Amino acid sequence: MWHLLEPLHALLYYAPEAFEEAAALGYGTGERWPSYFAWRAAPLGAAGPLRVASAFYSFSPAAVARYVPAAWATAEPADVLAARLRAVDRAYRAVLGEDAVAGPDPDPGLAEAAALARRAAEAASCAGRPLAAANAELPWPDSPHLVLWQAATVLREHRGDGHLAALLAAGLDPVEALVSFAAVGAAPEPVFASRGWSAAEWSAARDRLAARGLVDADGAATGAGRDLRAGIERRTDELAAAPWAALGPGEADRLADLLGGPWLAVIGSGLLPAENTLGIGKV
């Protein structure tokens, strides 16, 4: 379900329509980070860099501080949230098709998928999950395609918050989490440079992991390192399972079938990067 829903959420960070909305608010669009931090952190309110770095976890605090709290000097969180929905509306119309989203005969499968995804999202407990809770508190939009995006967002942040708990339980700090993930081949190391850690910080984290027997001298995961990452992924899935248990296997399978078309449209748009730190689009 994560593989199907994550691209539907992540389109916000790459669609040209989103950059246009960000520019209209006053954000720089020469890189995606000014709008990324605004879009993703806005549900938290005018949060400072410490709170945003805590919630996002894998970003260097120095990288976060380059964009927060400057994001809120550019636009108020409420204005960012309104623009966020406009961006998603426009991006979905472009990628999924105007007729499917809002034509005289819109795709009934999209409405059914939105209703099922919303039910799953509303079943997600937000205790101890700040980003999931912040998004779950937002009012639901009326249009099915926007409901689908918001449900995907609540569910991905719910899973992400649980993933951070699994990383903490495994004793991996933010940069160690990335180094250990790169060590199992999740993505080439240069892809993780977007998180803002210096070469010295990355090297020190690798040394700490090597001292624990989790990576070898070349930085590749040892058997213990692979086992640790596999355990983290299992625990993440377990912590993310409640919304799908509430939906039930039959309706979860139905939702998976309904999401196939939108997933292919988003992946096929070419807007999402082929290599990323999340594994978007990989099976």
Rank of each mutant, 00 (worst) to 15 (best):
W2T: 04
L4D: 14
P7H: 09
P7V: 00
P7W: 03
Y13N: 08
Y13D: 05
F19T: 12
E21Y: 00
A22C: 09
A24V: 02
T29G: 02
G30H: 04
W33V: 05
F37A: 06
R40Y: 07
A41I: 03
L50D: 15
V52C: 00
A53S: 01
S54N: 12
A73Q: 06
T74G: 04
T74R: 02
A78S: 13
R93P: 14
L96K: 01
E98I: 05
A102E: 15
G103I: 08
P104E: 11
D107V: 06
P108H: 04
E112F: 05
L116Y: 08
A117G: 09
R118A: 14
R119F: 07
A123W: 06
A136H: 04
L138W: 11
P141E: 04
D142A: 07
P144Q: 05
H145Y: 14
H145R: 14
V147N: 13
Q150V: 04
Q150L: 13
T153K: 01
H158M: 03
G160S: 08
G162Y: 01
G162V: 10
G162K: 00
L164Q: 09
A165F: 11
A166W: 08
G171I: 07
L172C: 09
P174Y: 05
E176T: 12
S180Q: 10
G185R: 03
P190Y: 02
V191Y: 01
G196S: 02
E201D: 05
E201C: 02
A204F: 04
D207M: 11
L209G: 13
L214S: 12
D216F: 13
A217F: 08
A221Y: 07
A224T: 02
G225V: 04
G225A: 11
G225K: 12
A230S: 12
G231H: 12
I232N: 09
T236L: 08
A242Y: 07
D253N: 11
R254K: 07
L255W: 01
L255K: 15
G260Q: 15
W263E: 14
A265V: 08
A265W: 02
G268D: 15
E275I: 10
N276S: 06
G279D: 01
V283G: 13
